[in-house]
Write a protein that binds this DNA or RNA. Structure first.
Length: 267
DNA sequence: ATGGTCGTCTTACGA
């Protein structure tokens, strides 16, 4: 048995339906996790996703901002939303699925971007991001008995030196400041998560999932960051076949600034 | 060069 899961910050799900269809045609993931859907639940485009074979869809949206969704070809049970920082943002959705006799808890996150100034005393958005990361430290990969776990999403932090185009030049840029990168690594360590993308690509290699809209030529500049992540409980590590980062999707018509990341498992 | 370009609650603001 094989199983694949894709995470993609889509930056408006309604605007991106054409490239979501393109992704599904190419990759056919069993589960598709989206972030920044930017739409209330009543207006979420369920029909086209169902037409692509995703009959099990759970959504958590709000008007204009944030929003997460899980679209699955296998049944989802026990769906759950956690209101991180208690501010009512649609930034987390979770469900359980079963595959190959295994029970798996799936978390889909959209972590706050954190604004421009990496100082919580003058930038409340940065404080919110740090508080959100602090709350994520409660999240353990082995929290539930006889249940594996996968955590995906746009975590808006590039934790390792080679997760950004220039470690030195980005040390004071939100997404790569030491307080963020150390915080995210503590979430990983404390929760006994495995960074599955880095299990297959050594930390010495550059790895990006996001390229800014603002570059004149994103591909030529190649000033990317690894903001999107796929983590797993340790038992899933040996079952991982490969990770695909679909860089070409950054060049598709009306692209998101993030590209899809897909994990393939023997599961 | 402290810019640039996307998106939506669009002439403001978040990313």
């Amino acid at each position: 048995m094989s199983f694949s899961i894709t995470t993609w910050n889509i930056n408006s799900v309604r605007l991106r339906m054409p490239i979501i269809e393109k992704l599904v045609m190419q990759q056919q993931p069993d589960i598709l996790c989206l972030q920044e859907t930017k739409v209330i639940n009543d207006l979420f485009p369920l029909a086209p996703l169902r037409a692509m074979g995703y009959e099990h869809i759970i959504i958590h949206g709000q008007k204009g901002y944030h929003g997460v969704a899980i679209a699955s070809r296998i049944p989802l049970v026990e769906d759950h939303r956690q209101d991180f920082c208690g501010v009512g943002d649609a930034r987390h959705i979770s469900a359980i699925f079963e595959r190959g006799g295994r029970r798996v808890r799936l978390h889909n996150f959209y972590v706050p971007a954190g604004g421009d100034e990496p100082d919580r005393t003058i930038n409340p958005k940065f404080g919110h991001k740090l508080d959100f990361i602090e709350e994520m430290k409660q999240l353990h990969a082995n929290a539930e008995p006889d249940t594996s776990a996968i955590l995906v999403g746009d975590l808006n932090i590039a934790p390792l030196e080679n997760d950004v185009w220039s470690h030195k030049q980005l040390l004071k840029i939100v997404s790569h400041t030491p307080v963020e990168t150390e915080g995210l690594l503590e979430v990983i360590r404390g929760g006994a998560w495995v960074d599955l993308m880095r299990q297959t690509v050594p930390a010495s290699e550059k790895l990006y999932t996001w390229w800014s809209y603002r570059a004149k030529d994103w591909e030529e500049a190649n000033r990317g960051r690894r903001l999107d992540h796929i983590w797993g409980s340790a038992d899933l590590g040996p079952l991982l076949q490969r990770i695909d980062i679909l860089k070409e999707a950054r060049g598709w018509d009306r692209p998101s600034d993030h590209v899809p990341v897909t994990a393939h498992f023997d599961l």
